[in-house]
């Protein structure tokens, strides 16, 4: 079955090449995508060391500040509110086990 699906894959890729069309590339903000992907990766890798609260706060600040630039005030307050809300929902209501990290919270 695996071989069959691989054959089908290559066959269709070959067919696809014939009808290839080029999409006009407009100016697009690729760096936003890179930042978001990098931020999520960093979040995931550091989650068990730094802990949920600090990590979430930093993550939200970064997203709010960089991707669609806000003032520092909006970013920090927004980060704080979402962190506390997420903590309430996941740790208090659903009692999921999200790691606490080295600082103990």
């Amino acid at each position: 079955m695996l071989i069959l699906s691989l054959v089908a894959l290559f066959q269709s890729m070959a067919r696809k090449k014939k009808v290839e069309k080029t999409a006009p590339q407009e100016l697009f903000r690729w760096w936003n995508i890179a930042i978001i992907l990098a931020a999520i990766t960093a979040y995931a890798l550091s989650l068990e060391k730094i802990g949920f609260l600090i990590n979430t706060f930093l993550f939200m600040c970064l997203l709010l500040k960089v991707v669609e630039p806000q003032t520092w005030k909006t970013a920090i307050i927004g980060g704080l509110i979402t962190t506390l809300a997420a903590n309430l929902v996941f740790n208090v209501v659903f009692r999921t086990q999200i790691p606490k990290g080295i600082f103990g919270f």
Binding site: I36, I40, F59, L63, E68, G78, T82, A86, F90
Partner: peptide, 20 residues
């Protein structure tokens, strides 16, 4: 900008707590 940040956070938590 608020909406997508929250969506992303939920995405991360959702996929993390499946298996921790």
């Amino acid at each position: 900008h608020f909406l997508f940040s929250i969506i992303l956070l939920l995405c991360i938590i959702g996929s993390y707590i499946t298996n921790n």
